[in-house]
């Protein structure tokens, strides 16, 4: 009963905060409204006793939103962000897409044949979750992890406009790299 109330309340809160993203007129407020929505979703997971998933959701989404706030405000045409802005573009199209996705998801959630729990709850659900995800697939997970990491590095390398010739000179014989930010290590 208490769980039901908590889930419903937090669910309404999550939707309301999500809607607020498109109502407020500053980038900072939009970002943190979205964070509030994610935290409400994490709270729902917590109410369902999925502690690890809940806490990890809160952790990841917070870091993500903070990084997003920084980059969004940095790259905005109006970096002040406090001046009126809006997250809404192409209103008619987005309403159609939003309503469509909502309909599909709701239909799916209510019509799917969810499995019943067989067996008892484990004492340590976090450990069981880890073993289920990682157990038989450790090699796959490791390969995926390295592939993702390689993607991040390649993305950074492609995005940076300074190469080794800028840093060490045309003959690559500079003793110290010529960087705009000196850095903290003696090189």
């Amino acid at each position: 009963m208490l769980t039901d109330v908590a889930v419903v309340t937090l669910g309404v809160l999550a939707v309301a905060a999500g809607a607020a993203v498109f109502v407020v007129d500053s980038m900072a407020r939009a970002t943190f409204a979205l964070l509030a929505s994610f935290l409400a979703a994490a709270g729902m997971l917590l109410a369902l006793d999925l502690v690890y998933v809940a806490v990890v959701t809160a952790l990841m989404m917070t870091i993500e939103m903070v990084v997003m706030a920084v980059f969004m405000i940095m790259f905005m045409m109006n970096p002040a962000g406090l001046m009126p802005m809006t997250m809404v573009h192409n209103v008619r199209g987005s309403v159609v897409v939003g309503a469509g996705v909502f309909a599909v998801l709701t239909t799916g959630i209510w019509t799917i044949d969810w499995p019943e729990r067989d067996g008892r709850r484990p004492a340590d659900a976090t450990r069981q979750l880890g073993e289920t995800i990682m157990g038989g697939h450790m090699l796959v997970m490791l390969v995926v992890g390295i592939a993702l990491f390689a993607t991040i590095i390649s993305g950074t390398v492609l995005a940076t406009h300074r190469g080794r010739y800028d840093r060490f000179g045309p003959e690559l014989d500079g003793e110290r790299p010529d960087d705009p930010v000196p850095g903290g290590l003696p090189r």
Binding site: Y52, V55, A58, T62, A125
Partner: peptide, 18 residues
């Protein structure tokens, strides 16, 4: 006391960023 105490501690720190 949960099975994810350390992650909780870290999540509070991440919220401190925000």
């Amino acid at each position: 006391s949960t099975t994810a105490d350390l992650v909780w501690f870290n999540a509070m720190e991440a919220l401190m960023w925000a």
